[in-house]
Computed example of a mutant assay.
Amino acid sequence: MSSLAARLRTLPALTGDLPDVDPFSLSPDPATAFVDWLQTAIDVGAPEPHAVGVATVDATGQPRSRVVLLTDVVDGCWRFATDGRSEKARDLLHDPRCALTVYWQPLGRQVRIVGRAAQVSEAERRADFLSRSPSARATLLAGVPGQPLSSVDEMHHQVRRARDRVDREPGLVADDWQVWSVRAEEVEFWQGVSDRAHMRLHYRWDGVRWDRRLVSP
């Protein structure tokens, strides 16, 4: 065992006052159940409770994952936004299948969502962009995601120039801004338990209704 592995073994996990969960007290609709858990995470002060991992697959079959911020849960779909020139946007245009993961450490809770992503309407896309702070809009307009930079100063220069443009044109919407809406096909709720008898409640869409069942951890 390496020194790192040995050190990792000593780190505590599933710490704190973990809540007891009756799995079948969750809503039969997973989006509603998710919002309930998200509200609880917000109420207990979980750090960045809207942070969500998004996994996609590129044209070669290479999986990629990154963390973004959830922007809403609407009509049973999970939403997040991105620059259309980003890797995740290119991946989703090639293959709309994706997976989302949320973890709220203070509660020992995890939710996994598997489904397909589609872009929202033009009006919703524009409204999402304009709802962001001037500084955020400037950063989004400053450059192409993943584009090489010669220095940190170059990045700051691009952002300052973009901020000047935002101040001059407050109604400006980036052409490449996209909002993606993920319609779930599977959702799993996981509640950690200190004795490791974890709760896993799995939802699967059968084409007509949600099938819900408790599964072994």
Rank of each mutant, 00 (worst) to 15 (best):
A6V: 10
P12S: 00
A13G: 13
A13L: 13
V21D: 08
V21C: 11
F24W: 08
S27Q: 01
T32Q: 11
T32L: 11
F34M: 06
D36P: 00
V44M: 07
G45T: 08
P47M: 05
E48M: 10
G53V: 13
Q62A: 13
R64Y: 13
R64D: 14
S65W: 03
R66Q: 05
W78G: 06
F80P: 02
F80N: 03
T82W: 00
G84H: 01
E87P: 10
A89M: 00
L92Q: 00
L92A: 01
D95A: 12
L107M: 12
V111A: 00
V114D: 12
R116E: 12
Q119R: 15
A123M: 10
E124S: 09
R125Y: 06
R125N: 09
R132L: 11
T139I: 14
L141N: 09
L141W: 09
V144S: 08
Q147T: 08
Q147I: 10
S151N: 09
E154K: 10
M155E: 15
H157W: 11
V159N: 03
R160P: 07
A162H: 03
R163Q: 14
V166D: 03
E169Q: 12
L172H: 13
W177V: 02
Q178P: 00
E185K: 06
E186N: 12
E188Q: 12
G192E: 05
G192Y: 04
G192H: 02
V193S: 13
V193G: 09
S194E: 15
R196I: 05
M199E: 12
M199F: 06
L201V: 04
R204F: 02
D206F: 00
R212L: 12
R213S: 10
L214E: 10
